[in-house]
Amino acid sequence: MSGASMHETGDVREAWGRITAWLERNDPETLATLGRPGSHAAIREAELRMGLNLPREMRQWLLANDIDAGRHPDDQSCLVALGCEIDIPGGHLLLGLTDIQRVYLSRMGLEEMEPSADPDHPFWRREWVPIAAERDGLYGTFLDTLSGTIGSWDEAYGPEEGAYASLFAFFQETADRLEGVSTGDWRGPGRTARPRRLDPRPEDESIRLWARANGYLVNDRGRIPASIREAYEVSQR
């Protein structure tokens, strides 16, 4: 059995334990931000709100540490209101259960409000659950609840599926980063060479300039909401 395949599956609690043990020795301040153990009741409430069942691996991780347990974001918070800064692949903030729900519902809402042009390659799938993200939720890492694999999304490039074979493999890579160890490629065999680039439409920059001049909030990258695009088109008639 190859080194890579041995680490595609395993007990996520073992991989997570490597991370927390390293933090306990080297970075107790970050360890303190990982929160306290989660609860079965909170996980079940989150599943009902998102309308899906979380895989056993993810449940085990959240029961060990839920970054958001006992914490509540204020009304003025970014989409990712809490989160933990730790050296995970992708460099995003690791999410707790509250932020997982916030980002998931936001991504699903965007996909339902403005469906992807290519249904075979949507910007978001119902079975994807975020585990890490930037504050604005436009970039991050997700777990596929059907396959158990780890992927990433980027508003400018689109999603990349199958980057890691499992949550266990993802956390093993994180532990390796922290410990300064490199023991091979932990990623699953289904990894694509690179994300699909979604080139912006030629008129996008003009729309962004017009939107800002007229009081609309619009990101520098990623999709322009259909409502803003339509308002721009009306203004040009």
Rank of each mutant, 00 (worst) to 15 (best):
M1A: 08
G3W: 10
S5Q: 13
V12Q: 00
W16T: 01
R18Q: 11
I19E: 04
R25M: 07
T30F: 11
L34D: 10
A46M: 09
E47N: 08
R49M: 13
G51M: 10
N53A: 13
L54T: 09
E57R: 00
L63I: 04
D68F: 14
Q76A: 14
C78Q: 04
L79R: 06
L79Y: 04
V80L: 05
A81F: 07
G83D: 10
D87E: 12
D87P: 07
L97K: 01
T98Q: 10
T98L: 02
T98P: 00
I100L: 13
I100C: 05
A117G: 15
D118E: 12
D120T: 13
R126D: 12
L143N: 09
D144H: 11
D144A: 14
D144K: 10
S147A: 13
G148C: 02
T149C: 14
G151M: 04
G158P: 03
G158R: 03
P159L: 03
P159M: 00
E161M: 12
A163C: 06
Q172M: 12
V181Q: 09
T183G: 01
R191F: 07
A193M: 09
A193G: 02
P195S: 08
P195I: 02
P195T: 01
I207P: 02
W210S: 04
A213Q: 15
G215Q: 06
G215R: 08
Y216D: 00
Y216R: 10
I228E: 02
Y232S: 00
Q236A: 10
